[in-house]
């Protein structure tokens, strides 16, 4: 399967490039980026062929592409790729508006190509084990979930300047856009139930610095059709000197007790000489690799991937509702899926 990456705007692009190269079924043909500086920088760093336009890349007829552009540009690239017959794995959030997400789903359906949303947490070993516990019925009826997906300012995760994460026009928003979707998607998957209502409070206290024009803190409450409720702390509340990028946690409380999911805890603390602070070294399984492998397998086997465009669209609806709620300070009902 011939694969390519469209844009290196997102900090995950380098990792996905490694994941594609590590998959024996994949022939990696290169990446396109219309930002020439960025294109040349990552061509040099990765040794991958760089295409200065998306048209030039799609002329190579890739079977599959991973879209890693700025969030607001996902739709345009997905429509181009679908028209060229390429299957698509899109970085999350699928889109910055529900309308764009729906357009992407429809464009891919019309073109007969796969659309997968990059929710790697579905492929994390601890989250999969937790799903098994829930499916076993051991927890019984789930009352609620207290979840976090906290991080740092995303641009701190990249040595190459990627300031667009805090530009509302390109990112769609800040911490809520970045960090509501993973937990929301995991809980939709766990509960097999849709979100019916969203309440959100957002603020901008962390990282008050030039160029940060989005919310950096937020607490969101989701209510599901099955009666469960869940809070998500989506804040960029980890300071720059934190020993890791952030994390995702879920504590599920139900009739049967408590299940704690902390997938990024598979770390050891390293106090290396010459470094001022300890660092957490992650030794757990590589969920991103499993996600990219699933994309490749799904395309090859001509089946729906484990995470679909519809899942990304539902997450986009939840984020949009969170912004409406934060504006009105009232809960916002979601239309039935």
């Amino acid at each position: 399967m011939r694969c390519a990456i469209m844009s290196f705007a997102h900090v995950h692009a380098e990792g996905y490039l490694r994941n594609l190269r590590a998959n024996p079924a994949v022939e990696f043909i290169g990446f396109a980026d219309e930002d020439a500086d960025r294109g040349r920088h990552f061509a040099e760093q990765t040794g991958a062929p760089w295409f200065p336009t998306y048209e030039a890349l799609l002329a190579e007829k890739p079977d599959g592409v991973i879209i890693c552009s700025e969030n607001a540009r996902h739709r345009a690239l997905a429509e181009m790729a679908a028209a060229a017959g390429a299957h698509i794995l899109s970085e999350k959030p699928l889109a910055t508006t529900p309308a764009d997400a729906q357009a992407m789903v429809e464009a891919c359906a019309r073109a007969g190509v796969t659309l997968m949303t990059a929710f790697p947490m579905r492929f994390s070993a601890p989250t999969i084990e937790a799903k098994k516990v829930l499916d076993s019925g051991a927890l019984g009826t789930v009352y609620g979930c207290n979840a976090t997906n906290q991080g740092q300012l995303p641009r701190l995760h990249s040595a190459y300047p990627r300031g667009w994460f805090t530009d509302p026009a390109l990112a769609g928003g800040g911490a809520a856009t970045d960090h509501v979707v993973h937990v929301a998607d995991l809980l939709r998957w766990y509960f097999q139930s849709e979100v019916t209502e969203v309440y959100a409070e957002l603020n901008r206290i962390f990282y008050q610095e030039p160029g940060v024009n989005v919310e950096t803190g937020g607490l969101v409450m989701l209510t599901f059709a099955n009666g469960a409720f869940a809070s998500i702390d989506c804040s960029w509340s980890k300071p720059p000197h934190y020993p890791t990028w952030g994390g995702l946690t879920m504590e599920l409380v139900g009739e049967g007790g408590l299940v704690i999911v902390d997938p990024f805890r598979q770390v050891m603390s390293v106090y290396a000489q010459g470094t001022a602070r300890p660092a957490w070294s992650y030794w757990g399984s590589n969920a991103n690799q499993a996600m990219v492998d699933e994309f490749v397998s799904a395309v090859q086997e001509r089946r729906a991937p484990a995470v679909t465009g519809h899942d990304g669209q539902q997450a986009a609806e939840i984020v949009a509702a969170a912004y409406r709620s934060a504006e009105s300070h009232q809960p916002v009902a979601l239309p039935p899926a």
Binding site: T141, Y143, G144, N146, Y199, E201, L219, M221, G227, A228, F229, A230, S231, V253, G254, E255, H329
Partner: peptide, 15 residues
């Protein structure tokens, strides 16, 4: 949410 549930559990968001 579930008046008959055997346990009690709540989450609150304060502004």
């Amino acid at each position: 949410a579930r008046p008959g549930a055997p346990g009690d559990y709540a989450l609150a968001i304060l502004r």
